[in-house]
Design a protein around this nucleic acid. Structure first.
Lengths: 218, 218
DNA sequence: TCTATAATCAAATGGACATTTGATTAACTC
DNA sequence: GAGTTAATCAAATGTCCATTTGATTATAGA
């Protein structure tokens, strides 16, 4: 019956940002559509005008976060900087990104499993629903692929360093996982009010991790 | 009406182990009491004979996992081994523990947030319920405290190393977080069928992390 | 101004659980 | 072997949500 003034600029983008924040606090399952809607001054029903359903909204949140960080790190990985410098900057960008948007950062760590266990629609669903589900699954798989590509950016630089002698002979796969684990964890414990800024934390971690693998002589 | 043979030995312990496994696959919210019950050949109702409710069961799972790993690492932290050796063994024990019980390991990472957002019982609850809730909250807070104590074991050893010159002058807090982040992440990606065993992974990571902080000369 | 489309909402709908209730049986104690 | 306790279950209960439905109002074109 009633209506909101139309200048509210509640678009897809705004909903995604708000959703990320709510998700960070409560986690996917504990977050209701009503919660998310309230964060943008809408009702739950209105969200369905912008997103097919709750799963699609979660996926959108994660996609935005992932694309952002890939956008930040990919150019560095493909630049012609010295390998050590490349890795240092990539670590820095990743961590700073996580601390600047802890909502998305935490979602990337915690909510991915929610995506994995999305359940199929009811057996007596319409063909439309089944088709929509297929589409969703495809999109979700693309997301996972993209996430692997992101990890691969780091892996490639690490391998490059080993190959050109910048780094010691280390296990590339394990070191990459170790690195990303350390990064992701920052998104979990970081607080804007803490002793160090995101940049400072990034520098400290980059130093430590690089120090562990840089070739001493040469 | 019917009954199960009594030799099934479905005790608290067995339920906790099974619950950890189910939780690992689906996450707390997506796991139903029925799922957990099925894993031990019971009905959901029967679980309430062993645990007050779902939250209490989750807490029990996490408590067991945490106590186990503390039991493994605390003696090392307090031993009179050289600092470097202490830290190496602690890293090793932690990671090996995580790979041996990936269920609990993943739960420690993913499900802690579920614990944090436990909601109070209904407003019109009996006094009994309210009291039980208080008790639960206390127990949960003890768990968080215990988790901090665990982290502190690592922090103390790192500080000791800095103080006695075994380690470079690093930021103790950040390095500890970095270390634990790398460890926890192993619980997320490790697969028993992978290229390396838990022990091998532990050794590789310990080497890398220690290499980053050990004093070169001396 | 009319019309189509985009946003929005209030109020149902429907299901999926967590939890309770009220038996029923096994096993142990005395 | 009578009584008590521990385990178990089937069947309700009650709530909480995601999602749908059916209006209602803006806004942008024509």
């Amino acid at each position: 019956m009633a209506r909101k003034p139309a200048d509210q600029s509640v678009n897809r983008e705004a909903i995604i940002v708000a959703a990320a924040e709510v998700l960070q606090k409560n986690g996917y399952e504990a977050t209701t559509m009503k919660d998310i809607a309230a964060a943008v001054n809408l009702t739950a029903a209105s969200l369905y005008h912008h997103f097919k359903n709750k799963d699609a909204l979660l996926l959108a949140v994660l996609e935005v976060g992932l694309e952002y960080i890939i956008q930040q790190t990919e150019p560095i990985a493909h630049s012609d900087l010295p390998t050590v410098e490349k890795l240092r900057r990539m670590i820095r960008e990743h961590i700073v990104g996580l601390t600047q948007n802890t909502a998305v950062g935490a979602a990337m760590v915690f909510e991915i499993r929610a995506l994995m266990s999305v359940k199929a629609p009811y057996r007596n669903a319409h063909d439309d629903d089944k088709e929509a589900f297929e589409t969703f699954i495809k999109r979700r798989d693309s997301f996972f692929l993209r996430r692997d590509q992101f990890e691969n950016l780091f892996r490639l630089v690490v391998r490059e360093g080993v190959d050109n002698g910048s780094f010691r002979t280390i296990d590339v796969a394990i070191f990459t996982k170790t690195l990303l684990g350390a990064h992701n964890w920052v998104g979990v414990w970081y607080r804007p009010t803490g002793r160090l800024s995101g940049e400072e934390i990034a520098d400290v971690i980059a130093d430590t991790m690089l120090n562990g693998v840089i070739t001493s002589r040469k």
